[in-house]
Design a binder for these strands. Structure first.
Lengths: 374, 374
DNA sequence: GCTTCGTAAGATAGCGCTGTCTTTGATGGC
DNA sequence: GCCATCAAAGACAGCGCTATCTTACGAAGC
């Protein structure tokens, strides 16, 4: 008897396999696809975990654990499962997985605009961090509307994501409470929050506007203007920083403030530039809240032979790829947009892993790139 | 007895509601969250269809049908369900829905690059068509690699999407057979396929290259070059069209062909421009496969005081927003990239609805925008 | 009045996984 | 050699929906 037990053990794996094969076969004949059931098949036509397990000669739950890399599975069994999965081209059904575990492998990312290159860089960096970790990225565009953002959050929460990345801090109260109630980790991008418990990655928008003001003052400019498009709360912050520095100066009047709701574009920049100089001919320095506006201004100035920076200095924001190549080359604030995405994604991964120790606000700073236009 | 039945019927709705309430309560006490079950609760904490149904006083299946807008539900009941859903902030669990119905409400969109503005316009148009129809958009970036595309397709098929949008026609055979086996509708974007059964929306890349060649010839240019970056199959097609037209001309030699694998960028355009003119000083016309390259060339030419189009004519591709504003303004091919996304999404929706009648290839054409640079 | 039929509502049974508890067998201490 | 302890594998049940079959009812026909 004892000998028999030992022998059985030494062949445990194959014995178990046979036993299971029989079990699953008898099961099949009673309700499987081969036809016992009176109800029609709703199967999706893809291999299931049960089939994979049968082929690998293990139980479904062991196959599940093996594929998820759970340590308690015997390495040999795990290898058999992986091989069988490769042979079958098995890919787990994410819907079943989400339903059973009450959470998906998705991360929702909400950005205010797809057409702004700025966020594309951020998105790509996020992708590069999350995809290798097997996380799906759900992208939502809320068009700078907190209400739309709320709708998206409500919708994406139904997907039971592992984490959420938000842009800015302008959420509606309902959005905030939805997020809090869900218990899902959230990281805010682009701005810095002092609120405890909020994790944010970005830089000081206000301070970047202040830096531009100081730069223009240092260049001897005294009649300044701030030009913004698209009702972007971060652009507003920058304008306020710009204003704050100027307010502290003698012999410098408050900046002309030109803000329009249309989306930012090169064409609009040219238009606003002309409108501004017509109305305030003595302006000698302009801070555009985005590079495309500043680029449009420079093109228009070239066309009208308005010397830049001779008559008016121009400073942009974001340091888009073209700005370094213009004639004159555009002075701009280089924003760490790709690094924001990267750091935010990393922070989110840490939070998902239950690691909350790091300081909640990560300031990645910004850099004023002084070029010919100022 | 009969009277009793009639009375019961006239109060059918509320009676049913009470009955169900009792049923679900007794059920709860045996296995629900209130604690009878010995196993812990795995509930997601969100309202479920069963709760919604209880509140609306209907059965879960009726609530399900009402929310999905299935016609056979009594309008009054449907209204009650919708009201209850609004009161509860009920959002159906997409995982459960997908698992039960064997298909999700997602559409997978695969594009070769996120950082190319071109595809962003297409993506945004796709979003605008699909989101209002309640379809989720899954975005995959395959980095111009058919192998990566194959991996993404395999992965996204596990999500059981309702449809798939692909960019280009360069799929691996495995990708094609995966798609065919899945039976899921697919629409190909950007290029036109003559293959029967393939639905495509785009324009003739080859013909657009030919149009540029004809344009430069008409401008009297005889020593031409084609410059491409990023191993983009569509750029190659354009080059071939360019070449084809030139090959048919007397006294015009075949174009210089400069193609590098790096991603397209303004800086690279400047570099390639200089390299090209150094090696072939008599070149008098260049077709750049993307506007950013052409823009870089123009910036570099301005810097080196090489007259454009005086010494060399420059033509770009895609008509990016800046091209109309350069000095000199850039001649380019305006591509219908947003309309491609829109039309492809519409075609996909039609296919999902089982409407396959329309002609499979939709040619949206292109437009040569003649400006100062040529 | 009785049967036949069509329609709206409900009962039932999963979809394919994973959390949890249970079982099994190996290990170590006495 | 026997029992407590531990780890690995499996059994079980259920996540929240929807497809399908069934039932119940009213209308229509004889």
């Amino acid at each position: 008897m004892l000998d028999a037990v030992k022998i059985a053990l030494s062949y445990a794996l194959s014995a178990a396999a046979i036993k299971r094969k029989n079990a699953s076969m008898s099961q099949r004949s009673s309700s499987g696809s081969s036809g016992g059931s009176s109800r029609g098949s709703r199967a999706s036509g893809r291999p299931t975990l049960a089939e994979l397990a049968r082929i690998a000669g293990v139980s479904p739950i062991t196959a599940s654990r093996a594929l998820r890399g759970i340590a308690s599975v015997d390495p040999d069994l795990a290898k058999r499962v992986r091989e069988a999965a490769a042979a079958l081209n098995y890919v787990a059904n994410p819907a079943a997985r989400t339903l059973a575990s009450a959470h998906s492998d998705a991360v929702a990312v909400l950005i205010p605009s797809l057409s702004n290159l700025l966020f594309i860089d951020t998105l790509e960096a996020i992708h590069d961090v999350l995809m290798p970790r097997g996380l799906e990225v759900l992208i939502g565009n809320f068009h700078y509307s907190p209400e739309e953002e709320e709708k998206l959050v409500r919708n994406y929460l139904a997907y039971q994501p592992r984490g959420i990345l938000l842009t800015g801090l302008e959420q509606t109260p309902a959005t905030r409470s939805l997020l809090k109630a869900s218990g899902i980790p959230v990281v805010y991008m682009m701005e810095l929050s002092r609120e405890t418990g909020l994790h944010s990655v970005g830089f000081s928008q206000e301070e970047s506007g202040a830096a531009v003001a100081r730069h223009l003052l240092a260049r001897g400019r005294r009649h300044l203007a701030y030009v913004a498009a698209q009702l972007d709360p971060r652009a507003l912050e920058r304008g306020l920083g710009f204003q704050r520095v100027l307010a502290g100066q003698r012999e410098v009047r408050p900046p002309v403030w030109l803000s329009v709701p249309e989306p930012s574009s090169v064409a609009l920049g040219g238009e606003l530039f002309v409108r501004l100089l017509d109305a305030y001919p003595d302006i000698d320095g302009i801070f555009f809240c985005n590079d495309d506006l500043a680029q449009g201004a420079i093109f228009e100035a070239t066309r009208r032979q308005i010397p830049i920076p001779g008559r008016v200095a121009v400073v942009g924001f974001n340091d888009l790829p073209l700005s370094a190549h213009m004639a004159p080359r555009l002075t701009s604030i280089r924003t760490p947009r790709a690094r924001v995405g990267e750091a935010a994604a990393h922070r989110l991964v840490d939070l998902m892993d239950g690691d909350c120790r790091a300081e909640p606000a990560i300031d990645l700073g910004f850099e004023l790139i002084e070029r010919e236009s100022s």
